[in-house]
Design a binder for these strands. Sequence first.
RNA 1: GCCGGAGUGGCGGAAUUGGCAGACGCGGCGGAUUCAAAAUCCGCUGGUGGCAACACCUUGAGGGUUCGAGUCCCUCCUCCGGCACCA
Length: 957
Amino acid sequence: MAYDFAAIESKWQQRWDEQHAYAAPNPGDDGFDASKPKFYCLDMFPYPSGVGLHVGHPLGYIATDVVARFERMLGRNVLHPMGFDAFGLPAEQFAIETGVHPRVTTEQNIANMVRQLKRLGLGYDWDRTVSTTDPGYYRWTQWVFLQLWNSYVDPATGKAEPIGELVAKLESEKYLVGPDAELIADYDGLDAIEGQPIGSRPWSDLTQEQRHRLLDEYRLAYLAEVDVNWCPALGTVLANEEVTADGRSERGNHPVFKRPLKQWMLRITAFADRLIDDLDLVDWPESIKLLQRNWIGKSIGAEVDFRVTIDDPDTHATMDTEIRVFTTRPDTLFGATYMVLAPEHPLVASITTDEQSEAVRAYVAEAAKKTNVDRQQDAKEKTGVFTGGYAVNPVNDQPIPVWVADYVMMGYGTGAIMAVPAHDTRDHEFARTFDLPITEVIKGSIDFRDEAYTGEGPYTQWAQNDEVSLVGCTMAKAKAKMIDWLGTKGLGHAKVQYKLRDWLFSRQRYWGEPFPVLHELDDAGNPTGHVIGVPEADLPVELPELDDFKPEPMDDPDAPPRPPLGRAPESWRIVERDGKRYARELNTMPQWAGSCWYYLRYLDPHNDEAMVDPATERYWMTGDDRRSGVDLYVGGVEHAVLHLLYARFWHKVLFDLGHVSTPEPFGKLFNQGYIQAYYYEDERGVRVPATEVTTTDGKPAYEAQGTKGATFTYEGQPVNEKYGKMGKSLKNAVAPDEICEQYGADTLRLYEMYMGPLDQSKPWNPQDIVGVHRFLQRVWRNFVDDEADALLVDEHAPDEDQLRLLHKTIKAVTDAMGSMSVNVAIAKLIEMNNAMVAMDRLPRALAEDFVRMLGPLAPHLAEELWERLGFGFSVTVADWPRHDERFLVEDTIELPVQVNGKLRGRVVVPADADRAAIESSARAAAESDEAVAAAVTGKSIRKVIVVPGRLVNLVVG
RNA sequence: GCCGGAGUGGCGGAAUUGGCAGACGCGGCGGAUUCAAAAUCCGCUGGUGGCAACACCUUGAGGGUUCGAGUCCCUCCUCCGGCACCA
């Protein structure tokens, strides 16, 4: 019997299952050891898709499994759970394809994935698994939603508080209500009549209806009529994050249109600053932090009002109004020579003169027809039309023309800009296209007539008026000076602007969490516009059973959405409460809802009383000597601005409300790379199954993949080789089951870890798998005499060299594992094993520690050898070996001797030799060593560089 | 266009952060074993020149700093990812 991986692996997988080997007790549970520090190791949980896993999926899972096992052996309480993000489009799509209810297919898919994961020997605590579609789970998703709905962000503290606090502050008149529903706390400095700021009112003056609406203005979850991304083909709206740059749905690649719809929104923008600032608290890749910062897109600048004369649309009387713009460059205000309104800007119609009205109307209509896609594609050429109207530049009283152009977006800032062609590239392009004046207010290194100068520089004579001058200022100073001046004149003020929008939170889908809210109906059965939350005791609001759960795709982008829950029985849709009738919300939550907080439910998954027990949460999410939150979170970069931003937002709300104890959920984030693979396309560009492609001379494709000049065929036809992320769509997926069948799970694990650095993408190469498989076989043969079924391990003490080998390896492997350089750790173990081949019987000390180190990487083989070494269950709870420095020091070392930086020879010196000793032996070598002597002959040694322990360099000349 | 990241043998990748470039694995070549093959074991394997010892070259290209550069600095090229008229 050789190394029978199939028997060994199923034996140990069964044992781990039966013994709950990876169950992590909570504080207070049996077997909980409070003396150990915690380690919370988390994977981004998968969608249980119907096709199961390919070998790319478990890359991150294997990595966390290795780390989790390593940390456990180092003596930590390790929590390593796994669950399923089963709501949402993929699961529903799969269910639609197969015609089976998503609950059924989801359960099947989960079962299949659990089987696949267990087969890889992944040490998850399966007692803690969750599925977002389980009513026992989404009950708490709905509960978190109610927390959001019942909270607001207090403008004074920037923190979420229960909405009741706001009511209390309004009742006690700590806040008054301003004309735009703003909360006014500071009475001083405001013009006031009889002690009340003008236009503001106390809470007591508001009607019931007004109070209701005011609170809705502040809730973190609110209904609003907003321009949404409507995807008729999917029959649903999408979040900004779910729409690609070219204006199509990320899923399915269907066109997306902007249209106003009343939808649930989450007020993530209230957390924009904290979402930026708190990135400093976490250990994440800088690139991901940057992506989030860019996505939030904070710009500091000013809002400025430009006076303009318009025709009142009702009375046709001429009147003055203002166009408000946002700018990051108030210092260039003197150079504003025209203005631009977005085509959707409300003032466009009234500002347009009669002569221009035809042209403007045509332009606006044209712009409205364009989808995001068109607007993107047309971005290269500037278009626009003059309104005929003029505004007044407030700094120099110059009349400036007002244009309409689609390079200004209604969705950002105020939908209007002041154009400074001398110092803004887009404005410059536009000014050149339409021959508009360009005024240089900063002297740059380039001619302002050719190109906009956006850098720092001296302000020109134009940058001043009678009251304020920017001449001689730095840019920062100039900005501050202008904002100051605008403020005193009542023309503008400092303003912070974000790209981040509030999060569109409803979908016209069946397979999602129902909203725990009710819409009040009047006697005629029409909604009154009032919403109440479902009491916590009545949660969950379960999804009704529907025979037809399909969304309704629509050809007409203007047709109203028809959510599938509208087809639920009236008994579900209509609720009576306190003699009033209410309609349930028919939209469902988006896919991201369940994944925003799942890491908290793992901590206490069976708790019926609370989302998570507070003491349990505190233990796993805080550690006195460790970073707060999850200790290691591993997943793909694709979630950089979706899941990772949403989850941080929810976490902060829960933090403010006192439900969690850390400001950030994920202390350390690691992005694994993708497994890439070659794929093949025929002449029409159609992808063909990669496994069936051969080289032109009939060899398997992988033997020549990536080689220059190689040619490939599929069914006799030539195909082109390409390279991309492994997956179904490229027809280059490899199933882990196949590899487990052929080589075993340990081999697959080891191969994926050995491919290269975890954070890099790298190609799947079937040829390389045999390398690590041979290593495991060699380990087996080193340890076990198959003939005699006996262990080749003796009790004899290891000699000096063997100890040196052992401790050198322990140090190297421990260091490598600690820095997640698993590929290097494996290389060191291979080296040690190769050295052990020469020993005919292994000294026990080496054998034991080798098996310990193998444990996290190849747990099945390690368990088997551990048992044969006579230990009890299991190597997963064995101690990680520690190296002993004494065995690392050598008596003598060989130092390279360089001459002018080139290696010429070597000298052997005592390990503790000092500089002088090393120098003199190097000088001696310059006489005795042929190569060194040859290099220095005829020259004199000018200088000797000695780096003790590393090398010596003779500088000659 | 802007912002990130990366370029090391035929391939995947090492290199204690400025100190022996190419660890380890794959592939290739040669040998042992075998009737033969698989498996296994041993040896060689960056390039060029040379019978050879050896010499020279070599970390995308070019320049610089340094006794010494894959590593630091400047310029450029290529690939990958993100954002994209964000005022």
